[in-house]
Design a protein around this nucleic acid. Structure first.
Length: 503
RNA sequence: GGCGCUAUCGUCUAGGGGUUAGGACGGAAGAUUCUCAAUCUUCAAACUCGGGUUCGAUUCCCGAUAGCGCUACCA
């Protein structure tokens, strides 16, 4: 049994919605394995389920994959030597090989009705036996069966499962063996002429010369049927690698109700693709030594190894993803983060649709100030509330602020500070702010928190926040800009605050 | 029900017949800064259970238990 020496892998999603993290991880491991081996990555669309498949989902899927940073060498959008790459375009191929199996006696026509099968199945279940097909049509005379079919009797095609245990090798699980006693003769072609998943997958993988089938372990139990199919068709059996399931925090298979689980969700949240890729790679794989965790896509291509993939299921941990995302946000060139962040601010109507250079330069300071402390970029507009949403009522009344303002020296500090602000009508600068604060300290005797907190509360509406040196220029410049929402200057804030509460 | 897969800190994992069972996220404490964040330091936290095999098992074998999957003319 020889297999082409060049590695060929495939990712074969069904176009039934957005790409899910579980599938994305499967795609990633395929891609990493292929790229490392200098092999070929095939993208195949499994759209035999006409009920659930939609054309628009296919382009979504490709977009999701591309956003993550994956690419492929053959696929429905690229073609290639073993196309077509959409199962709905391959129906004739499936029929042809199914008939070939019947002619060779490896498969047979089955005339059992749905009701009959169901009854048989229920009966076996009731007697606590494996609910496998009775084999009733196995013994039918082939010539006779063909006659019946040509007379118009509905016939499905079933594969004959061999009378011996089925063994196969799996890179992550080792040797796996199934007794043929528990494997039913599977239908490969429905009486309607539509082929069944477990069959088309084998035909496609074999015809597309796939050498390594890397997929979710929900397919592990289907593999014996597929191995039997390869053998019946006279095709080499590929290597398998069944990847563990990704679970939610409740240890149940990750699904929509666990919140963000599609790649599109993460993109919308402003998670960086390389952070997601890095995180996904860590779900079930660790480098030798097990201490390194930060890997760029290029590094993953070098370090990844299927042999080091764990067989046990993994719980998806949002916090750890965020940790990686924070890391990559800080590592990224500022211009990239600014560009990405911009859309979130435009959507929040904090920036105009087409910000000019002046606004962009100003916005860059906001991003530089806030982005390093954010889990994901969609948190930025909210973090920027201290710039865009100054509310004197909150500054005065919120319980934490009220407490700060009730400190003995708070009133004096604010009065002294206001005096400094009013004495000079030009824009506040960090230098002037610092010297003013020094004067306030000297005048009032307040120091540390009792000096800074009241000012912080009056200016930002919160007793905590970023450094004044960086915040003040943003406030002052922002107040000069033509923005959808006016940004209040230091002076304006102080006045609004004083109007609410004297000092 | 049957079959299969899986089992190390809360989570992701490294390790492997004799180890102080390592790292990371998260948590706690401290240092630092006006505060928050960041940073640094420190701490707590694990081999599912029961039998074997062995001088010695967390590691190998068997079983139990639990979780997940498959058991369709679904994919």
């Amino acid at each position: 049994m020889t297999i082409a020496s060049q590695v060929r892998v495939r990712f074969a999603p069904s176009p039934t919605g957005h790409l899910h993290v579980g599938n994305a991880r499967t795609a990633l491991f395929n891609w990493l394995f292929a790229r490392q081996a200098g092999g070929v990555m095939v993208l195949r669309i499994e759209d035999t389920d006409v009920e659930r498949s939609e054309a628009r989902f296919e382009s979504q899927l490709l977009d999701d994959l591309k956003w993550l940073g994956l690419d492929w060498d053959e696929g429905p959008d690229l073609s290639g030597p073993y196309g077509p790459y959409r199962q709905s375009d391959r129906v004739a191929v499936y029929r042809e090989h199914a008939e070939r199996l019947v002619s060779a006696g490896k498969a047979y026509l089955c005339f059992c009705s749905q009701e009959e099968l169901e009854r048989d199945r229920d009966e076996k279940l009731a007697r606590q036996l494996p609910p496998i097909y009775s084999g009733k049509c196995r013994a039918l005379d082939p010539v006779e069966a063909q006659h019946r079919r040509s007379r118009g009797d509905a016939a499905a095609i079933r594969l004959r499962i061999p009378e011996h245990p089925i063994r196969f090798h799996d890179i992550v699980h080792g040797m796996v063996e199934f007794s043929n006693e528990v494997v039913s003769d599977p239908i490969i072609l429905r009486s309607s002429g539509i082929p069944v998943y477990n069959y088309v997958v084998v035909v496609d993988d074999a015809l597309m010369k796939i050498t390594h089938v890397i997929r979710g372990d929900d397919h592990l139990s289907n593999t014996p049927k597929q191995v039997a199919l390869y053998e019946a068709l006279g095709w080499p059996v590929p290597e398998f690698a069944h990847l563990s399931t990704i679970l939610g925090t409740d240890r149940e298979r990750l699904s929509k109700r666990h919140g963000a689980t599609s790649i599109a969700n993460f993109r919308e949240m402003g998670v960086l693709p390389e952070a997601l890729m890095n995180y996904l790679a860590l779900l079930g794989w660790a480098p030798s030594g097990g201490t390194r965790e930060i890997f760029t896509p290029e590094e993953l291509k070098k370090e990844f190894s299927l042999q080091r993939v764990t067989p046990s299921p993994a719980v998806f941990d949002m916090e750890k993803l965020y940790w990686l995302d924070r890391h990559y946000i800080r590592q990224s060139p500022p211009e990239r983060i600014e560009k990405l962040a911009e859309s979130f601010f435009i959507r929040a109507r904090l920036l105009p649709d087409n910000p000019g250079d002046r606004i962009r330069a100003w916005f860059a300071k906001i991003v530089a100030l806030l982005a390093p402390s954010v889990d994901k970029l969609d948190e930025l507009p909210e973090r920027a509330a201290l710039i865009f949403d100054y509310d004197a009522a909150v500054a005065v009344n919120s319980p934490e602020n009220a407490e700060v303002l009730a400190w003995p020296k708070s009133g004096d500090v604010l009065a002294a500070f206001a005096q400094r602000v009013e004495s000079d009508s030009s824009a506040m600068t960090p230098e002037r702010f610092r010297s003013s604060m020094n004067e306030v300290r000297a005048e009032t005797g307040a120091r540390g928190k009792e000096l800074f907190h009241p000012v912080r509360v009056a200016l930002t509406g919160s007793h905590s926040g970023p450094e004044f040196d960086r915040l003040i220029p943003i406030l002052e410049e922002g107040s000069q800009l033509d923005l959808p929402r006016h940004v209040m200057s230091v002076r304006e804030r102080l006045e609004a605050f004083r109007a609410r509460r004297g000092f």
